[in-house]
Deep mutational scan, measured.
Amino acid sequence: ENVVSAPMPGKVLRVLVRVGDRVRVGQGLLVLEAMKMENEIPSPRDGVVKRILVKEGEIVDTGQPKIELG
């Protein structure tokens, strides 16, 4: 899985990584606000952040790609 998608609709509060960052499985990639709760979205695997496809403040839909890992 190279693309991390939104598990639920919500607002991107914070992006916790930058392009080029090495990430580990379970590491937080971003914080999504859904139903007035903050949810940290974890990396599904070890890898390197290739692209960030969302911006802080953006509203995302379920299944929308957010971060691409290499």
Rank of each mutant, 00 (worst) to 15 (best):
E1V: 14
E1M: 13
N2F: 15
N2E: 11
V3W: 15
V3I: 14
V4Y: 02
V4H: 04
V4N: 03
A6C: 12
A6N: 04
P7Y: 09
P7N: 12
P7I: 10
P7S: 13
M8V: 09
P9Q: 09
K11P: 01
K11D: 03
K11M: 09
K11S: 03
V12I: 13
V12Y: 00
L13W: 00
R14Q: 09
R14I: 10
V15E: 06
L16I: 07
R18E: 13
V19G: 01
D21Q: 13
D21N: 05
R22N: 11
R22F: 14
V23G: 01
R24M: 11
V25H: 10
V25Q: 13
V25F: 12
V25L: 13
G26L: 05
Q27F: 04
G28I: 15
L29A: 01
L29S: 01
L30H: 01
V31M: 05
V31P: 00
L32Q: 00
L32D: 01
L32C: 08
E33H: 06
E33W: 15
E33R: 03
E33M: 10
E33C: 15
A34H: 14
A34I: 14
M35K: 10
M35D: 14
K36H: 14
K36F: 14
M37E: 12
M37W: 07
M37I: 13
M37D: 08
M37A: 11
E38T: 10
N39E: 11
N39C: 15
N39R: 14
N39I: 15
E40G: 03
I41C: 09
P42Y: 12
S43C: 10
S43G: 03
P44C: 06
P44V: 05
P44I: 05
P44H: 09
P44M: 06
R45L: 12
R45S: 11
D46C: 10
D46N: 12
G47M: 02
V48E: 07
V48T: 10
V48K: 06
K50D: 05
K50L: 14
R51V: 09
L53H: 08
L53N: 05
L53Y: 12
L53K: 03
L53D: 04
V54S: 00
K55M: 11
K55H: 12
K55Q: 11
K55V: 12
E56I: 13
E56P: 12
G57K: 03
E58H: 06
E58W: 08
E58M: 10
I59A: 09
V60Q: 02
V60N: 02
V60S: 03
V60A: 04
D61E: 14
T62K: 14
Q64W: 08
Q64C: 07
P65N: 08
P65S: 08
K66P: 08
K66Y: 15
K66Q: 15
I67S: 03
I67G: 02
E68R: 07
E68C: 14
E68G: 05
E68T: 11
L69T: 02
G70F: 14
G70A: 14
